[in-house]
Simulated assay, not measured.
Amino acid sequence: MSHSALSTLRTRAEALAAPLPDLQAQAERLARTLLLGGHGRRQVGTGDEFWQYRPVQTGDSARAIDWRRSAQSDAQFVREKEWQAAQSVHLWVDRSAAMQFSSAQELGSKGDRAAVLALALSILLMKGGERVALAALGAPPRIGALQLTRISEALTSTDTADYGAPDATGFMPHANAVLISDFMGPIAAVEAAVATCADRGIKGALFQILDPAEEAFPYQGRTIFTSMGGAVSHETRRAGDLRDRYRDRLAERKDRLSILAKRAGWQFDTHHTDGSAQAALLWLYTALEGPR
């Protein structure tokens, strides 16, 4: 390879890597707020902290039985402890063109918020001993600094498609999953992904990220609406007349996502980019416990 070609390659590589330190720093700071707060996930596992008693089930060993508690009744009980064993969590983060929308520069895009939250969540999960996979990598869940670097790199890339379509075909059975998107595109792909997860015993959460302008629809007068990918464009002279219909459609989409999540035993929430990232991260972290 010639010197000029090497120089060009290095320049392109540096430009590609430039967002990574900032993303990692933001995610580390965000994750630290939860770690300092002592928030934890209450799940059954092999830890040291007592959680609850439950009746003996087929497959439980005699060593697992708490004979002192069992002696107090006619049934036998197992003493369950708080979850600490390694589990697997799959993340799908929408990196489509639609996620790059921002109504104000100081807010940042939906995609930026999604990337920071996904990486911060990965940091928290790995610090808790859990393995994490990002669907875009096409690899099984892993743990460690190298996996975090891979996730960071993938989260800085973008897709040319107008809207994202989650694909859960590579998700492991009985794992956990989080799908992060604005969910403004065709919903069939989301329904198919959640159905695939439900068939495999995967529990998780749908997390919708919206710009506040997408919620309020503050537009008036002559307005040209163009999709971020440029594939769709609509011009109107009275944008304000569309507000009620738009809000109704958005409410219908949220209801559909909420019902979809509930039927699968999942969690659903909507977050706005002008809202607290810490609150969003806490919701994501605790949502993996399942329905409450």
Rank of each mutant, 00 (worst) to 15 (best):
T33P: 06
R256G: 03
K203I: 12
V89A: 08
D269K: 12
L281Q: 06
A98H: 10
R12Q: 15
K127C: 04
V178R: 01
R10V: 12
Q147F: 01
I259V: 14
E82V: 10
S2N: 15
L148I: 05
R200F: 02
A98S: 15
A18R: 15
L155G: 00
D241V: 00
R41S: 05
L117Q: 11
D112I: 04
L146E: 15
L134I: 03
S109H: 07
S122M: 02
A86Q: 15
A136Q: 14
S258M: 10
F101D: 00
Q43L: 13
G128A: 12
L281A: 01
L155V: 04
L35Y: 00
A287L: 11
D112W: 07
A13E: 15
S96Y: 04
E289V: 08
L117Y: 10
A25V: 03
E28D: 12
S276M: 04
A193N: 09
T58Y: 00
L35R: 14
S152N: 01
P140R: 03
G229E: 05
A193P: 09
L206Q: 02
R263N: 12
E130S: 01
S276R: 07
S122A: 07
A165F: 00
D244Y: 11
I259W: 08
L23W: 01
V78S: 09
V89M: 00
P140L: 08
A216M: 02
Q24N: 03
A213H: 06
A277V: 05
R256F: 01
S2M: 11
G201C: 09
R256L: 09
W92R: 02
L155R: 07
Q278I: 11
M99D: 08
V132Q: 03
A175L: 09
T226G: 03
L146H: 11
F207D: 07
D162V: 01
T46R: 14
A120R: 07
A193W: 01
G164L: 03
R95D: 04
I259M: 12
Q220R: 15
A168T: 11
T286L: 14
A115K: 06
G111C: 10
G204S: 08
A175K: 08
E14R: 14
F171A: 10
Y53T: 07
D66G: 05
S102M: 02
S88C: 09
H174M: 11
Q208H: 06
R32S: 00
L155P: 05
E252Q: 14
A279N: 15
D74T: 15
A168S: 12
A15D: 12
K81W: 13
Q220L: 13
D244Q: 15
Y219K: 04
P173R: 04
H272S: 09
S103F: 02
A261E: 09
Y219N: 01
S102P: 06
R253M: 05
M1A: 08
Q26V: 02
D269C: 00
E14W: 07
V232W: 11
V78K: 06
G45D: 01
A287H: 12
A198H: 14
D167S: 03
E49P: 07
D74K: 13
D269H: 05
A189M: 09
D269Q: 14
T33V: 10
A104N: 08
D60I: 02
R41V: 08
V56N: 09
M184C: 06
A71M: 05
V132I: 06
